[in-house]
Design a protein around this nucleic acid. Structure first.
Lengths: 124, 124, 124, 124
DNA sequence: GTGGTCTAGACCACC
DNA sequence: GTGGTCTAGACCACA
């Protein structure tokens, strides 16, 4: 598992997304202990403060919780994780459809284009 | 037709997108004369400098051209417009599929979700 | 108006509280423009990052809003401010009564003690 | 009687407060023998080191004393206990009034609010 | 000039 | 060793 950062968007936002992705896809399981802030930061190649900022936000979302002296853990609330997955997907789709409508596409066209491009992407 | 701006993303980027959308969807037709920078800025409620920046960028993309004495016009190159439409759509779709894959969804699931949400959005 | 910080609790928390207090008591009025992060930080004698952290949190609470390039402003939602005031007071009182109960006091005793101490504090 | 700990504040501080509360309210009487550190720690579900730290602090305040061979006992000095109770209460009240003043409340309002909230809390 | 982000490096309380 | 806080100083995009 690797960290994939670009400089177009704030690094801490990308860190949040990637950790969310790890939780959603089950790479991190409920109750798992996360590596320490310092280790995560070193692994991702960012400053510990930046990683801290990302983790604080995840904590605010209740996706992780902190035991101040022993470390950080993934939430035990599996429902929350499922909800996050569903809700993220719905948001992505709505935004996407909005933009496509904005470009003048109808739903049938969109689906046909998606299947085309998806098969094209699979080849690579 | 109205301008729909929020302050989360750079205003000039949003202006570019909205003018592009107007060109792609045919609200502005090839050869049409654009309102003056001042009028456009007033209409959109932004600083003329910001609108200017957006138009300069659109000119760089050759979607509009300037006739020094008489004003700005939409490009006559219909191929360019079509290409923009296709290319924008492809980019949107690729980004979207990337993100959904990231959330752990397969192509079949995605299409099924899209049809669901699209019909749900239609109701509103 | 001055900043009153001690080192017992995190500085950024105290900054949040003091700005909240200024909003609640009407020192800052709805729609007022706040000084820039740098100015506020200089005024309070803290690092701009620390002030930034406090302001970000106030923004999350929707007590202030940001216009990225022109500055920060106090929310126009007066209801929110009133609600904050009431809710803060209620919280303070509940916590207080809880602690006093914990020390073995009944409500009548508490009120009598308060009036005594309040008059004593007034003298100073 | 149970231990009620959260992880927001230092555990050893919360232990001190709860033992003080037991002394003030007469749950532990002057001269009572305290359970062993290990038993107390087990009962509270904390590390023995942490409980030890709390007890050491209580000893420093002379609320408990140690008989090297037979264990720890509650102080026989009833005056000290009364004084602790009064002084704690006074401190609580002063802090509380300070905060309420900070929120823009006058003493009369405070008392009226307290009686309201107290009756509301009694119902639950 | 405005807010926002990031790094580097330090110190702290707690367990 | 853990998370949390803070400073100092820098750079960026935007208007």
């Amino acid at each position: 598992m690797q960290w994939d950062l670009n400089s177009e968007r704030p690094v801490y936002i990308q860190l949040i997304e990637q950790i969310q992705s790890r939780i959603i896809t089950g790479f991190y399981l409920p109750g798992d202990k996360l590596p320490s802030v310092r280790d995560l930061a070193a692994e991702a190649g960012v400053n510990p403060n930046t990683m801290q900022k990302a983790l604080t936000e995840l904590e605010r979302m209740e996706l992780v919780y902190t035991n101040r002296t022993s470390g950080r853990y993934i939430t035990l609330d599996q429902g929350l994780i499922k909800q996050l997955k569903k809700q993220s997907a719905k948001q992505q789709i709505q935004d996407f459809l909005e933009k496509m409508k904005y470009l003048g596409y109808e739903i049938e066209e969109i689906i046909s284009l998606i299947t085309d491009i998806a098969s094209e992407m699979k080849k690579n």
